[in-house]
Design a binder for these strands. Structure first.
Lengths: 160, 160
DNA sequence: TCAAAGTGGATAAACTTTATCCACGAATAC
DNA sequence: GTATTCGTGGATAAAGTTTATCCACTTTGA
């Protein structure tokens, strides 16, 4: 019960795109370099973001990725959904059916439990939808990533 | 972002204890047999439940496990907490510090994101606390597990 | 004295996450 | 056309987590 790291990566990616001056497309290699992951891996994340509609992509020379809409129109739920998906936290494996199949059949309300967990989860998602990235992140001054020296994994102080 | 199976197992265990006639202690081997896990593994789960205060244990002959309080006094949050713990869903790995450390320092509200996720999570837990097992499970007729033939993994229709 | 829980450590099987590399095809600026 | 960049997919693997198992020994209580 922990976020995938993809959520944090996505937040970084979206922030990078928001920081880009003049909404110029940002090449994937600039992003993968910053995040210190392979370009091929980063592209798979970007593809998800494009399919989900958070980001647009331009092919060809001078191509790259841009935000599909301003940060203020992107909610935490958008970011959560694109990485974690719509699947419920609580997923029944049918264990209780196994355990109480014979001799005891009192689970006439067997999915009452699942529904209850589901209701709480809906509340969670609903709250996430009320936060947008615009209100949570402050973009002071934009930059041109192209002109910033690429920083590899080895040049950073990684504190974990 | 998915429940551990321990939650489902715990719900089964608590249900078994609630079904036991006369609140007689239930031996761990009866429970592990039903759940089709090793007794030593089950005991580790039971220990957690005891430490967390959901269940009491009696040593010695005629010993076993009993509910520490009625189902109506056990909430979904209790079950959730005992298995999933108190750790937040969102855990920062410091990636954004890495990515934006130099050249860009606009993350003055860098934990605004974490706080937002945390707020939604609090809401989730709060809702879980409002459900108790008494209202979600119906106990028709109690049984004496001791007198019910032990059912092993091989005798059950496992549908996964 | 026996049956049960309590405790801890080593180990492992299965699964999920988090990637990497490679090899294409498709679009676009120049 | 040609170089650059995204689009797509598959095979593979490194690392981490979950979900256990087995064993050995201690403590508790009828």
């Amino acid at each position: 019960m922990k976020f995938k790291s993809g959520i944090e990566q996505t937040l970084c990616i979206l922030t990078m795109l928001a920081l880009q001056k003049n909404s110029k497309p940002v090449r994937s290699s600039l992003i993968s370099g910053r995040l210190a992951v392979s370009d091929s891996y980063l592209k798979k994340i970007m593809r998800q973001l494009v399919v989900f509609g958070l980001v647009t992509s331009d092919s060809g020379r001078e191509g790259g990725f841009r935000l599909a809409r301003p940060l203020s129109k992107i909610t935490l739920l958008d970011v959560f959904d694109v990485i974690e998906g719509k699947a419920q936290f609580a997923q029944s494996s049918g264990l209780s059916c196994q355990v109480f199949s014979d001799h005891v059949q009192d689970l006439n309300r067997k999915d009452a439990l699942m529904n209850a967990f589901g209701e709480a989860e809906q509340l969670y998602r609903k709250r996430l939808k009320q936060f947008n990235l615009g209100q949570l992140l402050t973009i002071d001054h934009q930059v041109d990533w192209e002109s910033i020296i690429k920083v590899g994994r080895e040049h950073l102080n990684v504190t974990t």
